[in-house]
């Protein structure tokens, strides 16, 4: 039985990443505060229209303008500060050195995922060598020995509870790489690499979306993230490596 894709009053998808819990807490805090302020402001607006003050009194600008303003400033400062802490934890530093490396390449309208293989290094790529018909959609340079064992897949498979460092690239136009259940999103920009790192926690299949309009097929630039228990992942990876070795052995 598949769980419903979203849950709760706010309709959020399940959170399956290590940093997702803190993010969700902060997001929900923000949403409830916004809802409360919304209700309060509308209450004041409607009450203010409905009631009739008997004797007009002079304005107390301090109490009805500056004090609430100061309170709001403090509230927003607090929220901003917490958000910056979470942001800094995720973005100010790169992934741990032991993090798993996967390269993500967006092109109209597919995602490709590349694992470095047993040598732990990605081979050079060259856009002029891109040949999807010859099973080289990323243009891996055949003269580079690092590239021989690189594994290219169309499904992102990751082990649970291990940090992963994604290198994002785009071949043609800007794409948006997003995994809602992992609470990550980052654009892939042609001509430059960007990094994003996270730790998947709960095994399962998750949606990968393109979130930056990239052409007519934008809506079907979807992929799947499969998070596996570590042991199962290792088996999968070994199978892929063996397949890759067999492919390269054949001339």
């Amino acid at each position: 039985m598949e769980a419903p894709p979203t849950h709760g009053f706010w309709n959020l998808p399940v959170d399956a990443a290590a940093h997702g819990h803190a993010l969700d807490t902060h997001l929900l805090l923000n949403l409830w505060i916004a809802l409360a302020l919304l209700a309060l402001a509308h209450l004041i607006l409607l009450l203010g229209i409905a009631i009739r003050k008997r004797t007009p009194r002079p304005y107390h600008q301090l109490f009805i303008e500056y004090l609430p303003l100061a309170a709001l400033t403090l509230l927003f400062a607090f929220l901003a500060l917490r958000a910056q802490q979470l942001w800094a934890a995720q973005r100010y530093t790169g992934a741990d050195l032991s993090a798993m490396q996967v390269e993500v390449t967006g092109q109209q309208f597919v995602w490709y995922f590349r694992y470095p293989g047993p040598d732990a290094a990605f081979g050079r790529t060259n856009l002029s060598l891109v040949a999807p018909a010859e099973v080289n959609p990323l243009g891996i340079d055949p003269t580079d020995t690092y590239g021989r064992d690189d594994i290219v897949t169309s499904q992102l498979v990751l082990p649970a509870n291990r940090e992963v460092d994604l290198t994002l690239r785009a071949q043609d136009v800007i794409h948006g790489f997003a995994i809602p259940e992992m609470r990550i999103k980052q654009n892939a920009i042609p001509g430059q690499t960007t990094h994003i790192h996270f730790t998947p926690e709960i095994p399962g299949d998750y949606a990968i979306l393109c979130t930056q309009v990239c052409g007519m097929g934008h809506y079907r630039m979807l992929a799947t993230l499969r998070v596996l228990p570590p042991a199962v992942f290792n088996t999968w990876l070994h199978t892929q490596e063996a397949l890759q070795a067999k492919d390269k052995a054949q001339p």
Partner: peptide, 18 residues
């Protein structure tokens, strides 16, 4: 072994924005 991937990012960080 696949647990240790080495320092692929070290090499990669030089590719990032100078």
């Amino acid at each position: 072994m696949t647990i240790l991937q080495g320092c692929a990012q070290c090499l990669d960080s030089t590719r990032a924005t100078p």
